[in-house]
């Protein structure tokens, strides 16, 4: 069964393009315009990996991970951002993100990050 990847970004162009990229690489993408929409969809099939935009109008990636953790949901998350900021990177990794990628994102880099995130052994420390 193809891996289900949830893409959460308030920018439609980014959502559509990443959905196409993931589909082209054999993944099953689902896109959400906000963390709220993602949380509402968790009742159905849970995604295997999350791709979260760092800064969105209501909840950003870091806040989204906190919300999921409160619900007892542990899904590896890759945080993407248009702001190459060391402070944001540090906070993202501290929050438990599997990877922190700056836009624009190369396909190989993204697929490698998804692969690493999904195959990470639970409890194994992240880089």
């Amino acid at each position: 069964m193809p891996l289900l990847v949830a893409i959460v970004d308030d920018d439609e162009a980014v959502r559509v393009s990443l959905r196409r990229l993931c589909s082209a690489y054999g993944l099953t993408p689902r896109t959400f315009a906000s963390v709220r929409q993602l949380l509402d969809s968790m009742e159905e099939r849970r995604p295997d990996c999350l791709i979260l935009d760092a800064q969105m109008p209501e909840l950003g990636a870091i806040e989204a991970q906190e919300q999921l953790r409160e619900r007892g949901i542990d899904i590896p998350a890759i945080i993407i951002t248009g702001r190459d900021d060391e402070e944001l990177r540090a906070r993202s990794m501290s929050s438990g993100a599997a990877a922190f990628l700056c836009k624009p994102i190369d396909a190989d880099v993204l697929m490698t990050a998804i692969d690493d995130a999904i195959n990470r052994v639970p409890g194994e420390p992240r880089d």
Partner: peptide, 21 residues
């Protein structure tokens, strides 16, 4: 820079998806 990165992200992801397709 942030505003420019959004369309550039879409362009790169679309282009690489297209090549793959």
């Amino acid at each position: 820079a942030h505003e420019l990165r959004q369309p550039l992200t879409a362009i790169l992801a679309n282009a690489q998806a297209g090549i793959r397709l």
